[in-house]
Each structure stands twice: as C-alpha cells, then as structure tokens.
Write a protein that binds this DNA or RNA. Sequence first.
RNA 1: GCCGGGAUGGCGGAAUUGGCAGACGCAGUGGACUCAAAAUCCACCGCCCCUCAAGGGCGUGCGAGUUCGAGUCUCGCUCCCGGCACCA
Length: 908
Amino acid sequence: MDKHPNPAEQEHTRGRERARYRPQEIEPKWQRFWLEHKTFRAQVDHTKPKYYILDMFPYPSAAGLHVGHPEGYTATDILARYKRMRGFNVLHPMGWDAFGLPAEQYAIETGTHPRITTARNIETFRRQIRSLGFSYDWDREISTCDPEYYRWTQWIFLKLYERGLAYLADVPVNWCPALGTVLANEEVIDGKSERGGYEVIRKPMRQWMLRITAYAERLLAGLDQLDWPENVKEMQRNWIGRSEGARIRFRLCHPDGTPLPEEDAFFDVFTTRPDTLFGATYCVLAPEHPLVDRITTPEQRAAVEAYRQEAMRKSDLARTELAREKTGVNTGGYALNPATGRAIPVWVADYVLLTYGTGAIMAVPGGDQRDWEFARRFGLPIIEVVQGGDMDKGAYVGDGPHVNSGFLDGLNVEDAKNRMIAWLEEHGYGERTVTYKLRDWLFSRQRYWGEPFPIIYVDGRPKPLRPEDLPVVLPEVESFKPTGTGEPPLAAVTSWVETVDPETGKPARRETNTMPQWAGSCWYYLRFIDPHNHERPWDADKERYWMPVDLYVGGVEHAVLHLLYARFWHQVLYDCGLVSTPEPFQKLVNQGMILGFSYRYYEDQQGRRYSYREVQKVSQDGLEEPRYVLAADPAVVLAVRYVPVDQVQWRDEVPYHPEDPQLELEPQTDKMSKSRGNVVNPDAVVAEYGADALRCYEMFMGPLEQVKPWNTRSVAGVYRFLSRVWSLFITDTGDLCPQIVADDPDPQASLTRLYHKTIKKVTEDIEGMRFHTALSALMVLLNEMQKAERIPRTIAEGFVLALSPFAPHLGEELWQRLGHSDTLAYEPWPTYDPALARDTVVTIPVQINGKLRATIAVAADADEATLLTAARANEKVQSYLQGRTVRREIVIPGRLVNFVVAEEGGGR
RNA sequence: GCCGGGAUGGCGGAAUUGGCAGACGCAGUGGACUCAAAAUCCACCGCCCCUCAAGGGCGUGCGAGUUCGAGUCUCGCUCCCGGCACCA
C-alpha cells in the first residue's frame, strides 16, 4: 500500500536528504565540469617533468564494461591525479581496440555492419568509463578501426616490408571444412572449432608473415632493462625460448657405412647436447621434412607415406595430445654418426617438429627421455654416455663423467660440450649455434573486420603501395559470410580487388587478407602522443618529449603476445629512427583478476537436482575438467548448474535454490561469466553507491596485482566511509561544519601528528601503488577527525586533497564548499613534516624470555639506560623478575626490551 | 613433468631491517535512538581454559632448524593459483 507522507514530512525528508552524501548528484556535476573545462588536457610543456601513464585500451565488446576494467583504470587514474598534483605534466589517454572477431561474427549472424556494432559498443564503453570520473584527456581518444588511424598501421607495415621483415609464405592454417573458413588459433579449442565443434585441419595457404625471429635476441636482451613483473619477463623469455647448442651434419649412407656420393646427401640436426653424440643410435626426421622422400627405401615407402599423411592432417594440438605413446616409422635409410663413423637408422616420427631447430634430431636414448621412450618402443639400441643413471629405468640427463665417448671419456657435460663443438668445427661436421622457440608471426587473417594490407599484386607479384596511396579503406561488402573456399570475404568484392597500380597504371589485384587484431594495438601508445596528425603517424618532437610510457597497466593475459608484438614493432621503429627509446613500456603492472561468487548445484540427465553434499568429484587423469558423480551411486554422472547471484535465496547465511528451498547451494569464487551468473555490472554499483565508492572499493579490496573476489557488501562499507567524510564537512543543513576552524594546527596535538603520519603514508603508498593501505590510513585519520572538537582548516583541506585521487568527485565538491573556486586537480599535493610524522611518546613492549609481558610508555628517543630503568620499574615486569637471575638484557631503542632470565630452581 | 606465485580470524586483508600478530573494512553480537524498522551512533569481536574479576595457555598450511626473539630467515614437505609443456 502506498504511503502518502504529509507535505511537512516530505519537506523535512527532502531537506535532510539534500545535505546527505549524494554521489548521484555531485558525480555527474563534476564529470561535466572536467569535460567542459578540458581539465585534463595534456600538452607538451618543457618546463615540467612528463609522466605518461597508460591503460591497456579495451576491446569494446557488446557486453559493456566489466568490474575488472575499472580496477586497472582506477589505479592509473589515482596515480595520474597524484602526479599532476606533484607538478608532473601527465599524459593519460584512452581509446578503443576496435577491430575484432565478435563484431564480425555478429555481422555474419545478423547482417549488421561491424562498423555500426563497434560504434554502438564504443558509445557504451565511453559512457561507462566517463561515469567513473577518470581523468583522461578525451581529446586524444582514438579507435583502431578509424581509417585515419589504420592508415598509419598500414604505413608501419610498409616500413616492415621495406626492411624485409614482412614476407609471403605457404604456411598451414586452421582450416575448418564444415564452416568453410579459416579459424584463428583462439577459435580452435581442442582441435575443434569453437563454434559448432567441427573438425579443424591444417591446410597450407599463402600468408603474410612478420620476421619477429630476426629480433629474438634483442627482444630477449631488452627485458633486462625493464621494470616489469618478473613472471611476465620469464614468460616472454620462455616464449622466445633461446637455447644454445650445435648444428651437426649427418651424411646419408648405405647400411654398411659407405656415404652416398651426392654433395647434398645430408641433413642437419640441432642439439643442445653435442657432448652425447657418441650415444646417438638413430636419427629422426619430422614427417614434413623435405628429405624424407629421398631417404625412404622402396620397401618402406608405403608405410612412411601413410604415416606422413596422417601426421600432416593432424593439428599441432592433436599431435601433442596423442603423444603419450610415441609413434614413428623406419624410413629404411641410414646416416653416418660423425663421431662413431657408424651407420645409424633414420626414422620419421611426429615427436619431432619441423618448425623447431632443423626439423631433424639425433636421438640419444641414453641422454634424452623422449628418445629413450622411442628406442624402447621400437627396440633401438640405448648406450650410456654420461654416468649416473640407470639405462633400464630411463635416460640420464644429469651431469657426470662421459663414458663410451672416445675423446670425451671422463669429461663432465660442460667441458665435453665445448670439446665436441671444437672437434665438430675442426672437422667441418658442424658448429656452435643458437636456436629459438619463437617462430615468425602469422600476420594474415581471412577476415573482413581488420586492416587491409597496403599491398597490390601486379603481374602476380606483390608490390607495396606508396605512402600517398594510403589509407587502403575497407570496402563495403554484400555479405560478411565466409566464401566457402577459404578466400577472405574481401575476395568477393571484385570492384575493390581489381584495381590499377597507382604508380604505373597497370592492372593490379589487391591483397584480400586483413591484419590480425594485434596490429592496431602494436603502436597505439605512439598515436596517443599526437592523435590528430594528418602528415605523420606522430610528431618527432612530441615523441621525444612523452616517450617512453612510464607506467603501463593491464591484464596479465597480454603478458606474451601483445607485449611481445608491440616491443617488436617498437624496436623496428627504433631502427628506422622513428622513435627515440629502445623499449616502449618502462614499467608494467598487471592488475589481478576480480572474481565473483557463484552458487552451484548439480543436475542428472533426468533434470533432478542435487546439492554439493551428495556429489563426489572425480578428477580424470590428464584432463582439465573434473567429472561429478553421485556419491551414493557413482554411475550417475552430473552436470554443474549455477543459480545467478540475484536469485539465490538466503536463510541463516546459507544459500538455497530459489525453486527448491531444501537444496543447499555451494558458494564458489569463479572468474565472472554470464553462464555462472556471477557478473557484477559496474553501472549498477555506480547507480547505488556512486563512482567514488566503486573506485575506492576496487582499490580497497587488496593489493592491485592480486586475484580477489568481489563482495558487494563491502562496497557499502566504503560508501559509509565516504558518507562519513561528507558529514564531517557538511552539516545536515548543507553548511560547512563549525568544527572546521581557522586555527593553526597545534604541533603537540595528537591529531596534528596523525595528520602528518597519514600524509606520509598515503604519499608513500601511492608511489608504491599500495592503494588499499593508503585508503586504510585515510580511514584512520577520518575516525580521529570525527572525534575532534576542532579541526584546523589546513588539516581538513589536506585530507580532502589526499583523498581526491581516490574519490575525485567528492574531493572536488568538498574543495568547492571549502571556498575554492577552481578544480583541485592541480593543487599542490599536501606535504608532511617528518618531525611531526613521528610520535614523541611511544609504547614499548617488554618481553621476558621473548614473551610479551608488559608495555611501557617512554619518550621516542629514550636511550637504552632509560628504557631499562623504565622496564625494571614496571610492576608486572618486577613480578616476573622476582627471584630469577637475569642472564641477558636486550634493549633496542624505539623497539623493545627483552629480559632473558634463568628458569626458577626446582628440578629444571 | 618444468617454471613462477601463494597459504595469516567467519571473510577481504595489515604488519619498515627478524622486535606488541590480526591495522582498516566486511560479516557477527550487545546497546543507544525509534511506536517500529531502516539509517546512524557507541561497545565487543583469533581459539581454548578459568571466570566475579584478575589471569593463563595456544595461535600466521605442516615438520624441523637458526635466534634473546620468526608471519618474516634456512632446510624438508602438503595443498592452492597462474604459465609452459615431445622445443631436441
């Protein structure tokens, strides 16, 4: 029933509410103010130190912003606002990684142009991001799908091409016959298409490749200079995968050891263990190795051919998945072990990959577990070359003296390697070499929604367009559907594909592949420096001023690909003289994922529901997904089901199913996802608690880098904090609180001391990105200010300034109500007096035998003697020292007193 | 299997160099205000024993060690999270 309050009551309520903390009113007000006044516009200013602070720009998905996004954005925003107040010239931009598969997939399903979908999604993202009060310079907003942007992506591709770093090659791609299209790696899950679950096979296609391997050594070496998380650097090192070893040449021979006469009758192997060459009892070629045909004997040809066909059809993933049991076929051919001079058989096996090393190995079953397994399976000889293991149990990979190894006998591994390499080089059998796991970057996608290549084919040969011919703009297409032949959608636009060479006027065909999504994000941080330049991708002076990015914050999922690709492009641009720093991102921080509570139960095939208490988890060997069965009857296999968070029924703090009040749900913290029903929408949080509360909560949750679960109830706690800040300054009637007085702070007052301590801590914590402890320090100060009868204005204002990077709307509002007419964004950061940030009287613990027994209050600078006297004077201490011998006194001024006493007599 | 990170109350987390474990917040309990509720404010809040109180014992995943003193350092385990995984 509706309640109709009488007008007086209504008036009363409204009057009181107006004076309350109402983020819904003050937040849009200040967002408008910042936008209208361009408060955060950044311009080159050589009188100020610069600070470039960058967020990994988002892909504007249809789902909109997620609470994970504002975590990193808030951290950078706090730092950006803090740095401005510290006198830095701050560049803090935001933009959109706007090419991408979901928009294209949506176009295939609905016919809506990806440009329209993307524009709509950007609209949403921009609104959501603005509603959080981030201090971006919106004049620098860019979008990778804008022709004015991708024109320069194409321009950089031309630079790569000029330097021979872009080339065409026939490489196997993920071809899905059922869908009639090529899939990106991320669209292939367990060898099946992500959509539909159809089979995916490898099919060679002509593709653009980028020669990132040419930069492998520099990409590796550059890591040492960077202030990045160690795990990210390690992941990049592993990805690059440098290994030192030798290339060794094996000549083909007859079974009796006579070498074949032809000059080119050989293959090279790569090994990290040249010292084990005497133990190489056979060789293995990758199934795709070009020499396989030639070496295979007529008797073996059918078997080898069948094996090759099968291996080639399998995807890399399928090949590794089935790899439990080694497979292979003898070619019937032989090669000469250069060390022993004996003929050893040559096999084909798919445990050797064509793409690594030379695509061929010498197999040392005594020193390599894979070779050992293979030798066991096929009855090949196993020779011990390094002592220390048991050849019946497995290969020995450790160090030890060499045996059965001719001139290496007795040497340890390190010495034997060097000795063998010297011997190989001396006799022309091989040389020292370095190999990388890193492979060249497959840069073509058979897709519509990406950057077209600035390449045309004249007389069937690729030719780069000239810079003045750019941009090559994406044409309109009839259909976004794949052509069915593996040709990209652009191939169907005849009027676009058939063109003329602008230089010669000869007929030409356009490249119809597009670039991958990584392309646009490889250099966006450079475009932010000079986003509206029509002549150049960026101005050289501006680049020198702003680069490098001082702090880059984003998710750890980009630890390898994006960050490696961007570094690669940057190093190329550096070699071109186009950028002034060898590395783009000086400091990197990964924010931890925010998890959501989800509530699970289980269902059998008949749709009967079960609580987790009746269910048993069966983890299957080697498989990611565990299975769930009924504990009472393990034959009943159960499926996991979730109840969306907002439908969970709570009784006595226990969650139950909404339609089945007896069914107890199992609370879990999981990655947020639609299917688990545990996604938290930032819009809803802003509507209820405001952006400042959302920002503060995200920071207060814990260390930035850490994974942590979202707890909406805790948001209310932070909201209460902000409300209390508000009511400390503003009375019920909307005036400034009378407790805030013009007095000078009394240096002896505990509030003054606490204030200085707080400013010190907040300053240090922001610098160290410990935002959660900075907020807790501000909370402590607020608690004390609330108890104070008089709050000196300088303290009140300093508090507002120190809080403002965290809660900028509230900060601005209070600043204004304190009588200031301009934004606080450029007010000097509050300072602290180190002398006042220390206590004069401290509480010192007194221990007896290391156990805390009393505390004493003494002057902070009390010396050892004073401390000891005070401690001995303490009544409790005396009772413990009564009748015992003090063996030792440990006194640390400012820290503690510890008496080491002998135990009382009586048998001990 | 290999590499990296971690384990602290009911929960998120805090703790300078080895020096008062549990700051701050959430949840909870009791109280004030209220016709009542919400909101707000005040107090309590690791576990156990004793209890009128005072007190005492235990306690930072497990087991050892170093030290006057260990969440922190060393050694050995267990479990969890992330990455890589036939890379020769």
